[in-house]
Design a protein around this nucleic acid. Structure first.
Lengths: 212, 212
DNA sequence: AGCTCCATGTAAGTCGTTACATGATTCA
DNA sequence: TGAATCATGTAACGACTTACATGGAGCT
Protein backbone atom coordinates (compact mmCIF):
# COMPACT_ATOMS: atom_id res chain seq x y z
CA UNK A 1 0.00 0.00 0.00
CA UNK A 2 2.96 2.36 -0.30
CA UNK A 3 1.99 3.54 -3.77
CA UNK A 4 -1.21 5.17 -2.56
CA UNK A 5 0.53 7.01 0.22
CA UNK A 6 3.40 8.09 -1.97
CA UNK A 7 0.86 9.60 -4.36
CA UNK A 8 -0.95 11.32 -1.51
CA UNK A 9 2.38 12.68 -0.26
CA UNK A 10 3.16 14.09 -3.71
CA UNK A 11 -0.26 15.71 -3.95
CA UNK A 12 0.18 17.31 -0.55
CA UNK A 13 2.51 19.76 -2.29
CA UNK A 14 -0.33 20.85 -4.59
CA UNK A 15 -2.53 19.57 -7.45
CA UNK A 16 -0.98 17.62 -10.32
CA UNK A 17 -2.30 15.69 -13.30
CA UNK A 18 -1.66 11.97 -13.59
CA UNK A 19 1.06 12.58 -16.09
CA UNK A 20 2.86 15.23 -14.03
CA UNK A 21 2.49 13.03 -10.98
CA UNK A 22 4.04 10.12 -12.82
CA UNK A 23 6.99 12.27 -13.81
CA UNK A 24 7.47 13.72 -10.34
CA UNK A 25 7.19 10.20 -9.05
CA UNK A 26 10.00 9.00 -11.29
CA UNK A 27 12.21 11.79 -10.00
CA UNK A 28 11.58 11.27 -6.30
CA UNK A 29 9.61 8.39 -4.82
CA UNK A 30 10.71 6.00 -7.57
CA UNK A 31 14.13 5.85 -5.88
CA UNK A 32 12.43 3.92 -3.09
CA UNK A 33 9.26 2.62 -4.76
CA UNK A 34 9.09 1.61 -8.37
CA UNK A 35 5.79 1.96 -10.28
CA UNK A 36 4.69 2.09 -13.90
CA UNK A 37 2.65 4.97 -15.25
CA UNK A 38 -0.26 2.68 -16.00
CA UNK A 39 -0.42 1.70 -12.37
CA UNK A 40 -0.34 5.30 -11.23
CA UNK A 41 -3.37 6.16 -13.36
CA UNK A 42 -5.37 3.25 -11.98
CA UNK A 43 -4.32 3.97 -8.41
CA UNK A 44 -5.39 7.60 -8.78
CA UNK A 45 -8.85 6.46 -9.87
CA UNK A 46 -9.01 4.19 -6.85
CA UNK A 47 -7.89 6.99 -4.54
CA UNK A 48 -10.63 9.17 -5.97
CA UNK A 49 -13.18 6.42 -5.46
CA UNK A 50 -12.04 6.14 -1.84
CA UNK A 51 -12.40 9.89 -1.36
CA UNK A 52 -8.73 10.64 -0.68
CA UNK A 53 -8.23 12.76 -3.81
CA UNK A 54 -10.53 14.59 -6.17
CA UNK A 55 -10.06 15.43 -9.82
CA UNK A 56 -11.31 18.03 -12.27
CA UNK A 57 -11.35 18.07 -16.04
CA UNK A 58 -9.26 20.91 -17.36
CA UNK A 59 -8.70 22.01 -20.96
CA UNK A 60 -5.28 21.43 -22.39
CA UNK A 61 -3.66 23.68 -24.97
CA UNK A 62 -5.48 26.27 -27.05
CA UNK A 63 -8.25 24.22 -28.62
CA UNK A 64 -10.81 22.89 -26.20
CA UNK A 65 -10.74 19.28 -27.36
CA UNK A 66 -7.71 18.03 -25.43
CA UNK A 67 -8.34 17.38 -21.75
CA UNK A 68 -6.20 16.82 -18.70
CA UNK A 69 -7.24 15.80 -15.23
CA UNK A 70 -5.56 17.52 -12.27
CA UNK A 71 -5.88 15.67 -8.99
CA UNK A 72 -5.84 17.28 -5.60
CA UNK A 73 -5.74 16.05 -2.03
CA UNK A 74 -8.97 16.04 -0.01
CA UNK A 75 -9.32 16.56 3.72
CA UNK A 76 -9.73 12.79 4.08
CA UNK A 77 -6.59 12.27 2.02
CA UNK A 78 -4.63 14.58 4.32
CA UNK A 79 -5.98 12.65 7.29
CA UNK A 80 -5.00 9.34 5.72
CA UNK A 81 -1.48 10.65 5.16
CA UNK A 82 -1.22 11.61 8.81
CA UNK A 83 -2.54 8.23 9.89
CA UNK A 84 -0.14 6.37 7.60
CA UNK A 85 2.95 8.17 8.85
CA UNK A 86 2.06 7.24 12.43
CA UNK A 87 1.53 3.59 11.66
CA UNK A 88 4.50 1.28 12.26
CA UNK A 89 4.97 -1.11 9.34
CA UNK A 90 5.93 -4.74 9.62
CA UNK A 91 9.30 -5.54 8.16
CA UNK A 92 8.94 -5.77 4.39
CA UNK A 93 9.18 -9.32 3.02
CA UNK A 94 12.64 -9.73 1.52
CA UNK A 95 12.68 -10.52 -2.17
CA UNK A 96 16.03 -10.07 -3.82
CA UNK A 97 16.72 -12.06 -7.01
CA UNK A 98 20.39 -11.23 -7.05
CA UNK A 99 21.13 -12.49 -3.56
CA UNK A 100 19.29 -15.69 -4.32
CA UNK A 101 21.63 -16.23 -7.23
CA UNK A 102 24.68 -15.15 -5.23
CA UNK A 103 24.05 -18.10 -2.93
CA UNK A 104 24.31 -20.56 -5.81
CA UNK A 105 27.15 -19.25 -7.95
CA UNK A 106 28.88 -22.63 -7.66
CA UNK A 107 26.51 -23.85 -10.38
CA UNK A 108 28.43 -21.65 -12.81
CA UNK A 109 32.06 -21.07 -13.66
CA UNK A 110 34.39 -18.73 -11.81
CA UNK A 111 34.34 -16.52 -14.87
CA UNK A 112 30.56 -16.38 -14.65
CA UNK A 113 30.73 -15.42 -10.98
CA UNK A 114 33.02 -12.55 -11.96
CA UNK A 115 30.56 -11.44 -14.64
CA UNK A 116 27.78 -11.48 -12.07
CA UNK A 117 29.71 -9.48 -9.49
CA UNK A 118 30.80 -6.97 -12.12
CA UNK A 119 27.23 -6.48 -13.33
CA UNK A 120 26.09 -6.02 -9.74
CA UNK A 121 28.81 -3.48 -9.17
CA UNK A 122 27.91 -1.49 -12.28
CA UNK A 123 24.24 -1.37 -11.36
CA UNK A 124 25.04 0.07 -7.96
CA UNK A 125 27.56 2.56 -9.29
CA UNK A 126 24.76 3.99 -11.41
CA UNK A 127 22.37 4.04 -8.46
CA UNK A 128 24.95 5.61 -6.15
CA UNK A 129 25.61 8.43 -8.60
CA UNK A 130 21.92 9.01 -9.14
CA UNK A 131 21.25 9.15 -5.38
CA UNK A 132 24.20 11.47 -4.82
CA UNK A 133 22.97 13.88 -7.46
CA UNK A 134 19.50 13.79 -5.99
CA UNK A 135 20.60 14.41 -2.43
CA UNK A 136 22.64 17.36 -3.66
CA UNK A 137 19.50 18.78 -5.30
CA UNK A 138 17.53 18.23 -2.11
CA UNK A 139 20.12 19.96 0.04
CA UNK A 140 20.01 22.97 -2.29
CA UNK A 141 16.21 22.80 -2.46
CA UNK A 142 16.72 22.55 -6.19
CA UNK A 143 13.90 20.34 -7.46
CA UNK A 144 10.46 21.49 -8.58
CA UNK A 145 8.87 19.28 -5.97
CA UNK A 146 10.85 20.39 -2.93
CA UNK A 147 10.36 24.02 -3.91
CA UNK A 148 6.60 23.56 -4.02
CA UNK A 149 6.64 21.81 -0.69
CA UNK A 150 8.76 24.45 1.04
CA UNK A 151 6.70 27.25 -0.48
CA UNK A 152 3.60 25.77 1.02
CA UNK A 153 4.93 24.87 4.45
CA UNK A 154 5.60 27.07 7.47
CA UNK A 155 9.28 28.11 7.54
CA UNK A 156 9.66 26.40 10.91
CA UNK A 157 9.05 23.07 9.19
CA UNK A 158 11.56 23.61 6.36
CA UNK A 159 14.48 22.07 8.15
CA UNK A 160 12.61 18.88 9.02
CA UNK A 161 11.18 18.47 5.51
CA UNK A 162 14.64 18.59 3.96
CA UNK A 163 16.45 16.72 6.72
CA UNK A 164 14.20 13.65 6.71
CA UNK A 165 14.53 13.30 2.95
CA UNK A 166 18.28 13.81 2.96
CA UNK A 167 18.63 11.24 5.71
CA UNK A 168 16.56 8.71 3.75
CA UNK A 169 18.78 9.17 0.72
CA UNK A 170 21.91 9.00 2.83
CA UNK A 171 20.84 5.48 3.63
CA UNK A 172 20.36 4.57 0.00
CA UNK A 173 23.80 5.96 -0.85
CA UNK A 174 25.41 4.01 1.97
CA UNK A 175 23.63 0.89 0.79
CA UNK A 176 24.83 1.36 -2.78
CA UNK A 177 28.40 1.81 -1.52
CA UNK A 178 28.05 -1.35 0.52
CA UNK A 179 26.96 -3.31 -2.53
CA UNK A 180 29.85 -1.96 -4.55
CA UNK A 181 32.50 -2.90 -2.03
CA UNK A 182 30.80 -6.22 -1.46
CA UNK A 183 30.96 -6.95 -5.19
CA UNK A 184 34.64 -6.02 -5.11
CA UNK A 185 35.21 -8.47 -2.29
CA UNK A 186 33.33 -11.06 -4.30
CA UNK A 187 35.65 -10.51 -7.23
CA UNK A 188 38.80 -11.05 -5.23
CA UNK A 189 37.20 -14.01 -3.49
CA UNK A 190 36.62 -15.61 -6.88
CA UNK A 191 40.18 -14.91 -7.93
CA UNK A 192 41.62 -16.53 -4.83
CA UNK A 193 39.36 -19.57 -5.10
CA UNK A 194 40.28 -20.06 -8.71
CA UNK A 195 43.96 -19.74 -7.90
CA UNK A 196 43.67 -22.26 -5.07
CA UNK A 197 41.85 -24.67 -7.39
CA UNK A 198 44.53 -24.43 -10.04
CA UNK A 199 41.74 -24.03 -12.60
CA UNK A 200 41.91 -21.04 -14.87
CA UNK A 201 39.63 -19.08 -17.10
CA UNK A 202 37.54 -21.93 -18.49
CA UNK A 203 33.75 -21.88 -18.44
CA UNK A 204 33.22 -25.15 -16.59
CA UNK A 205 30.77 -24.91 -13.69
CA UNK A 206 32.48 -25.25 -10.33
CA UNK A 207 29.82 -27.77 -9.43
CA UNK A 208 27.61 -28.85 -12.32
CA UNK A 209 24.00 -29.24 -11.15
CA UNK A 210 22.99 -32.86 -11.50
CA UNK A 211 19.93 -35.01 -10.98
CA UNK A 212 19.00 -37.37 -8.13
CA UNK B 1 11.06 -15.91 -11.31
CA UNK B 2 13.44 -16.41 -8.40
CA UNK B 3 11.11 -18.74 -6.55
CA UNK B 4 11.31 -21.43 -9.22
CA UNK B 5 15.06 -21.34 -9.32
CA UNK B 6 15.40 -21.32 -5.57
CA UNK B 7 13.27 -24.46 -5.46
CA UNK B 8 15.35 -26.09 -8.18
CA UNK B 9 18.49 -25.21 -6.26
CA UNK B 10 17.12 -26.83 -3.11
CA UNK B 11 16.16 -29.96 -5.02
CA UNK B 12 19.63 -30.22 -6.52
CA UNK B 13 20.73 -31.48 -3.10
CA UNK B 14 18.29 -34.40 -3.39
CA UNK B 15 14.55 -35.19 -3.43
CA UNK B 16 12.24 -33.52 -0.94
CA UNK B 17 8.48 -33.35 -0.42
CA UNK B 18 6.67 -30.02 -0.71
CA UNK B 19 6.47 -29.77 3.02
CA UNK B 20 10.15 -30.52 3.63
CA UNK B 21 11.02 -28.13 0.84
CA UNK B 22 8.94 -25.41 2.43
CA UNK B 23 10.73 -25.92 5.73
CA UNK B 24 14.19 -25.99 4.18
CA UNK B 25 13.17 -22.91 2.26
CA UNK B 26 12.28 -21.05 5.44
CA UNK B 27 15.67 -21.88 6.89
CA UNK B 28 17.77 -20.83 3.90
CA UNK B 29 16.42 -19.12 0.82
CA UNK B 30 13.75 -17.27 2.79
CA UNK B 31 16.49 -14.99 4.12
CA UNK B 32 16.70 -13.57 0.60
CA UNK B 33 13.35 -14.53 -0.92
CA UNK B 34 10.18 -14.70 1.06
CA UNK B 35 7.43 -17.15 0.02
CA UNK B 36 4.37 -18.72 1.62
CA UNK B 37 3.90 -22.46 1.75
CA UNK B 38 0.81 -22.28 -0.43
CA UNK B 39 2.85 -20.62 -3.14
CA UNK B 40 5.56 -23.26 -2.93
CA UNK B 41 3.05 -26.05 -3.52
CA UNK B 42 1.60 -24.35 -6.59
CA UNK B 43 5.02 -23.50 -7.97
CA UNK B 44 6.11 -27.13 -7.59
CA UNK B 45 3.13 -28.25 -9.67
CA UNK B 46 4.06 -25.71 -12.31
CA UNK B 47 7.68 -26.85 -12.31
CA UNK B 48 6.50 -30.40 -12.81
CA UNK B 49 4.25 -29.32 -15.65
CA UNK B 50 7.25 -27.60 -17.25
CA UNK B 51 9.35 -30.75 -16.89
CA UNK B 52 11.94 -29.32 -14.49
CA UNK B 53 11.00 -31.58 -11.59
CA UNK B 54 9.17 -34.86 -11.25
CA UNK B 55 7.19 -36.22 -8.34
CA UNK B 56 6.18 -39.61 -7.02
CA UNK B 57 3.46 -40.61 -4.61
CA UNK B 58 4.98 -42.21 -1.56
CA UNK B 59 3.21 -43.78 1.42
CA UNK B 60 3.45 -41.95 4.69
CA UNK B 61 3.47 -43.69 8.05
CA UNK B 62 2.45 -47.28 8.68
CA UNK B 63 -1.01 -47.40 7.16
CA UNK B 64 -1.10 -46.95 3.40
CA UNK B 65 -3.79 -44.25 3.32
CA UNK B 66 -1.66 -41.18 4.00
CA UNK B 67 0.41 -39.98 1.05
CA UNK B 68 3.33 -37.64 0.52
CA UNK B 69 4.82 -36.43 -2.72
CA UNK B 70 8.62 -36.26 -2.99
CA UNK B 71 9.89 -34.07 -5.80
CA UNK B 72 13.17 -34.53 -7.57
CA UNK B 73 15.14 -32.57 -10.13
CA UNK B 74 15.07 -33.71 -13.75
CA UNK B 75 17.85 -33.38 -16.29
CA UNK B 76 15.98 -30.40 -17.76
CA UNK B 77 15.72 -28.88 -14.30
CA UNK B 78 19.47 -29.20 -13.80
CA UNK B 79 19.98 -27.55 -17.18
CA UNK B 80 17.63 -24.73 -16.28
CA UNK B 81 19.54 -24.16 -13.06
CA UNK B 82 22.79 -23.89 -15.00
CA UNK B 83 21.20 -21.51 -17.50
CA UNK B 84 19.74 -19.34 -14.76
CA UNK B 85 23.02 -18.93 -12.89
CA UNK B 86 24.69 -17.72 -16.08
CA UNK B 87 22.03 -15.17 -16.86
CA UNK B 88 22.67 -11.61 -15.70
CA UNK B 89 19.57 -10.12 -14.07
CA UNK B 90 18.35 -6.59 -14.47
CA UNK B 91 18.48 -4.57 -11.29
CA UNK B 92 15.47 -5.52 -9.18
CA UNK B 93 12.78 -2.84 -9.01
CA UNK B 94 13.11 -1.10 -5.66
CA UNK B 95 10.08 -1.34 -3.42
CA UNK B 96 10.72 -0.40 0.15
CA UNK B 97 7.74 0.79 2.23
CA UNK B 98 9.87 1.96 5.11
CA UNK B 99 12.07 4.26 3.06
CA UNK B 100 9.01 5.75 1.42
CA UNK B 101 7.75 6.67 4.86
CA UNK B 102 11.17 7.84 6.03
CA UNK B 103 11.02 10.53 3.34
CA UNK B 104 7.83 11.95 4.79
CA UNK B 105 8.28 11.78 8.54
CA UNK B 106 7.57 15.53 8.75
CA UNK B 107 3.87 14.63 8.50
CA UNK B 108 4.16 13.20 12.01
CA UNK B 109 5.55 14.37 15.33
CA UNK B 110 9.18 14.10 16.39
CA UNK B 111 8.09 11.50 18.88
CA UNK B 112 6.53 9.51 16.06
CA UNK B 113 9.73 9.72 14.04
CA UNK B 114 11.58 8.28 17.03
CA UNK B 115 9.06 5.45 17.28
CA UNK B 116 9.58 4.69 13.61
CA UNK B 117 13.36 4.68 13.83
CA UNK B 118 13.28 2.53 16.94
CA UNK B 119 10.97 0.00 15.27
CA UNK B 120 13.25 -0.08 12.24
CA UNK B 121 16.24 -0.64 14.46
CA UNK B 122 14.61 -3.50 16.34
CA UNK B 123 13.60 -5.25 13.14
CA UNK B 124 17.15 -5.17 11.86
CA UNK B 125 18.66 -6.27 15.16
CA UNK B 126 16.55 -9.41 14.88
CA UNK B 127 17.58 -9.93 11.27
CA UNK B 128 21.25 -9.32 12.02
CA UNK B 129 21.24 -11.91 14.79
CA UNK B 130 19.42 -14.40 12.62
CA UNK B 131 21.88 -13.93 9.74
CA UNK B 132 24.84 -14.20 12.06
CA UNK B 133 23.61 -17.46 13.50
CA UNK B 134 22.97 -18.80 10.03
CA UNK B 135 26.39 -17.85 8.67
CA UNK B 136 27.97 -19.55 11.66
CA UNK B 137 26.03 -22.73 10.83
CA UNK B 138 27.12 -22.49 7.21
CA UNK B 139 30.77 -22.05 8.12
CA UNK B 140 30.58 -25.16 10.29
CA UNK B 141 28.57 -27.02 7.64
CA UNK B 142 25.99 -27.47 10.36
CA UNK B 143 22.62 -27.41 8.59
CA UNK B 144 20.80 -30.40 7.14
CA UNK B 145 20.81 -28.75 3.75
CA UNK B 146 24.49 -27.88 3.48
CA UNK B 147 25.42 -31.37 4.69
CA UNK B 148 23.34 -32.93 1.93
CA UNK B 149 24.87 -30.65 -0.65
CA UNK B 150 28.44 -31.29 0.41
CA UNK B 151 27.81 -35.04 0.62
CA UNK B 152 26.69 -35.04 -2.95
CA UNK B 153 29.31 -32.75 -4.45
CA UNK B 154 32.92 -33.46 -5.36
CA UNK B 155 35.24 -32.42 -2.50
CA UNK B 156 36.97 -29.95 -4.84
CA UNK B 157 33.72 -27.96 -4.98
CA UNK B 158 33.14 -27.84 -1.23
CA UNK B 159 35.02 -24.64 -0.66
CA UNK B 160 33.13 -22.74 -3.38
CA UNK B 161 29.74 -24.01 -2.22
CA UNK B 162 30.31 -22.73 1.29
CA UNK B 163 32.19 -19.57 0.34
CA UNK B 164 29.56 -18.20 -2.03
CA UNK B 165 26.83 -18.70 0.56
CA UNK B 166 28.86 -17.19 3.36
CA UNK B 167 29.69 -14.21 1.19
CA UNK B 168 26.01 -13.68 0.34
CA UNK B 169 25.11 -13.68 4.02
CA UNK B 170 28.02 -11.41 4.86
CA UNK B 171 26.29 -8.87 2.68
CA UNK B 172 22.98 -9.28 4.46
CA UNK B 173 24.70 -8.87 7.83
CA UNK B 174 26.47 -5.73 6.67
CA UNK B 175 23.19 -4.37 5.37
CA UNK B 176 21.45 -5.05 8.67
CA UNK B 177 24.26 -3.28 10.54
CA UNK B 178 23.94 -0.35 8.18
CA UNK B 179 20.23 -0.07 8.88
CA UNK B 180 20.84 -0.20 12.61
CA UNK B 181 23.42 2.56 12.65
CA UNK B 182 21.32 4.57 10.23
CA UNK B 183 18.35 4.30 12.56
CA UNK B 184 20.61 5.45 15.41
CA UNK B 185 21.66 8.46 13.37
CA UNK B 186 18.00 9.13 12.67
CA UNK B 187 17.26 9.12 16.39
CA UNK B 188 19.91 11.68 17.21
CA UNK B 189 18.88 13.74 14.20
CA UNK B 190 15.36 13.90 15.58
CA UNK B 191 16.65 14.89 19.01
CA UNK B 192 18.73 17.72 17.62
CA UNK B 193 15.92 19.01 15.41
CA UNK B 194 13.50 18.97 18.28
CA UNK B 195 15.98 20.79 20.46
CA UNK B 196 16.60 23.43 17.82
CA UNK B 197 12.84 23.89 17.40
CA UNK B 198 12.34 24.41 21.10
CA UNK B 199 9.41 22.00 20.87
CA UNK B 200 9.39 19.05 23.19
CA UNK B 201 7.69 15.74 23.48
CA UNK B 202 4.26 16.66 22.16
CA UNK B 203 2.52 14.70 19.43
CA UNK B 204 1.92 17.60 17.04
CA UNK B 205 2.96 16.86 13.46
CA UNK B 206 6.01 18.87 12.43
CA UNK B 207 4.11 19.79 9.29
CA UNK B 208 0.46 18.83 9.30
CA UNK B 209 -0.62 17.60 5.85
CA UNK B 210 -3.19 19.97 4.44
CA UNK B 211 -5.35 20.28 1.36
CA UNK B 212 -4.95 22.45 -1.73
C1' DA C 1 -8.62 -37.81 24.31
C1' DG C 2 -6.20 -34.11 22.74
C1' DC C 3 -2.19 -31.66 21.07
C1' DT C 4 1.43 -30.86 17.82
C1' DC C 5 3.36 -31.70 13.73
C1' DC C 6 3.21 -33.70 9.06
C1' DA C 7 1.14 -33.08 4.67
C1' DT C 8 -1.33 -31.10 0.62
C1' DG C 9 -3.74 -28.20 -1.28
C1' DT C 10 -7.90 -24.55 -3.29
C1' DA C 11 -10.28 -20.00 -3.95
C1' DA C 12 -10.71 -15.31 -4.04
C1' DG C 13 -8.65 -11.29 -4.31
C1' DT C 14 -4.81 -7.64 -4.63
C1' DC C 15 -0.81 -5.74 -6.61
C1' DG C 16 2.00 -5.17 -10.36
C1' DT C 17 3.70 -5.95 -15.35
C1' DT C 18 3.43 -5.96 -20.30
C1' DA C 19 1.46 -4.76 -24.15
C1' DC C 20 -1.69 -2.31 -26.46
C1' DA C 21 -4.48 1.83 -27.90
C1' DT C 22 -5.36 6.55 -28.99
C1' DG C 23 -4.83 11.13 -29.97
C1' DA C 24 -3.45 16.25 -29.15
C1' DT C 25 0.21 19.74 -28.73
C1' DT C 26 4.51 21.89 -29.49
C1' DC C 27 8.51 22.94 -31.71
C1' DA C 28 11.95 22.71 -35.36
C1' DT D 1 5.76 17.57 -42.05
C1' DG D 2 7.55 14.91 -38.60
C1' DA D 3 9.36 13.91 -34.08
C1' DA D 4 9.11 14.47 -29.24
C1' DT D 5 6.36 15.02 -25.58
C1' DC D 6 1.95 15.60 -23.30
C1' DA D 7 -1.93 13.02 -21.83
C1' DT D 8 -5.02 9.11 -20.42
C1' DG D 9 -6.10 5.03 -20.21
C1' DT D 10 -7.63 -0.62 -20.91
C1' DA D 11 -6.90 -5.74 -21.08
C1' DA D 12 -4.73 -9.78 -20.09
C1' DC D 13 -1.79 -11.95 -17.43
C1' DG D 14 1.41 -13.28 -13.66
C1' DA D 15 2.99 -13.20 -8.86
C1' DC D 16 1.77 -13.16 -4.31
C1' DT D 17 -1.38 -12.96 -0.12
C1' DT D 18 -5.04 -14.33 2.86
C1' DA D 19 -8.07 -17.31 4.29
C1' DC D 20 -9.95 -21.52 4.17
C1' DA D 21 -10.13 -26.71 4.12
C1' DT D 22 -8.95 -31.36 5.29
C1' DG D 23 -7.08 -35.12 7.53
C1' DG D 24 -3.39 -38.63 9.19
C1' DA D 25 0.62 -39.66 12.38
C1' DG D 26 2.87 -39.67 16.67
C1' DC D 27 3.16 -38.73 21.21
C1' DT D 28 1.49 -38.09 26.07
Amino acid sequence: MSLRHALLALLEAGPLTGYQLAKQFDRSVAFTWHARHSQIYTELRRLEHDGFVESAEAPRGGSARAVKRPYSLTRDGAGELERWVTEVEDAAPIRDPWHVKAQYLEFGSYENARRQFRAHREQYVILRDRYERHVEDLRNADTALIKRRLDKAEPSAHRAIVTFKVHAYANLIARARLEISWADEGLSLVDSMELADGASGDEEPVHRPSVQ
